[in-house]
C-alpha cells in the first residue's frame, strides 16, 4: 500500500459529510405516491404492493432489468468458452444433501412465484433459488447434456424477456399502452410473466456461474 491514505482520509471525510447532509436534508416524501399506489391496487392484479410496482406500475424497470441480466450473460459468453474443471466426484455428504435439497429448492421456488402475488416473494427470489440449485448441481458434477446446451438453453434464457415483451406488445395491440395490462386479466398475465421470468433468471444465474458459453456444436 504505497499510496498515501492520509491524503485520502480527509477527502473521504468531506465526501461523507456532504452525503450525510444530503441524506438528512432530503425534502419530505411525496405523500401522493403511496396513496396513489393504495388507491390503484385493485386494478394492479396483485395484492402485494411491491409485486404490483415491479410488474405493473413500473414494468419498464423490470423489463429492462431482465435485459441487463441477458446482456451480462452475453458479455460473459462472448469472452470465453466454459472452462474445463477437473470434475472430482463429490463426497458422499454433498451428494446426498444435494439430492435432498434440489427438489426442495424447486418446490420453494414454485411457492415463491405463486405467493408473490399477495406476499413478499416473486420472480427474482424464486429465480435466485433456481440459480442456487443450478450452482449446487454443477458443483456436484452434474452437467447439461450437449443436446440441450444449444438452442433449448438459449430459448430458456430469453424466455422471460420475450414473454414480457410479448405481453407488453399484446397490450399495445388491443388498444391500450405498452405494458398496460387490462385490469380483468392482469393477475393472470403477471403470473405468466413471473413464471417465465423465474425460469430465465434461474438459468441465467446458473449460466453466469459457469463462466463461459457451453461448448458444443454451434
Amino acid at each position: 500500500m504505497d499510496t498515501r491514505p492520509w491524503l485520502l482520509l480527509p477527502l473521504l471525510l468531506v465526501l461523507g459529510v456532504v452525503l450525510s447532509y444530503a441524506v438528512l436534508s432530503i425534502p419530505d416524501p411525496a405523500q401522493e405516491l403511496p396513496t396513489m399506489l393504495t388507491d390503484n391496487m385493485t386494478i394492479s392484479g396483485a395484492h402485494n404492493p411491491v409485486s404490483a410496482v415491479l410488474l405493473n406500475f413500473r414494468g419498464y424497470d423490470t423489463l429492462l432489468e431482465m435485459g441487463v441480466l441477458l446482456a451480462a450473460l452475453l458479455g460473459v459468453w462472448s469472452l470465453d468458452e466454459m472452462p474445463i474443471y477437473r470434475g472430482s466426484a463429490p463426497d458422499q455428504i454433498l451428494d446426498i444433501m444435494s439430492r435432498q435439497l434440489i427438489p426442495v429448492f424447486i418446490l420453494v421456488a414454485g411457492y415463491l412465484v405463486w405467493a408473490g402475488a399477495d406476499a413478499p416473494g416473486g420472480a427474482f427470489q424464486a429465480g435466485a433459488l433456481l440459480g442456487a440449485a443450478g450452482v449446487l448441481l454443477r458443483l456436484c458434477g452434474w452437467r447439461v447434456n450437449n443436446r440441450y446446451s444449444g438452442l433449448p438453453l438459449r430459448v430458456l434464457l430469453v424466455l422471460g424477456l420475450a414473454m414480457f415483451v410479448m405481453v407488453g406488445t399484446g397490450a399495445l395491440l388491443i388498444g391500450s399502452e405498452f405494458l398496460r395490462y387490462p385490469p380483468t386479466v392482469a393477475s393472470e398475465l403477471m403470473l405468466i410473466i413471473e413464471s417465465a421470468a423465474t425460469l430465465s433468471i434461474g438459468a441465467t444465474l446458473a449460466a453466469l456461474f459457469l463462466g463461459g458459453r457451453p461448448k458444443g456444436e454451434e
Binding site: P29, L33, P34, L37, P49, V50, A52, V53, D61
Partner: peptide, 8 residues
C-alpha cells in the same frame, strides 16, 4: 406502510 417504489 412504507413507500414501496424504493423497495422495488
Amino acid at each position: 406502510q412504507p413507500d414501496t417504489v424504493p423497495h422495488a
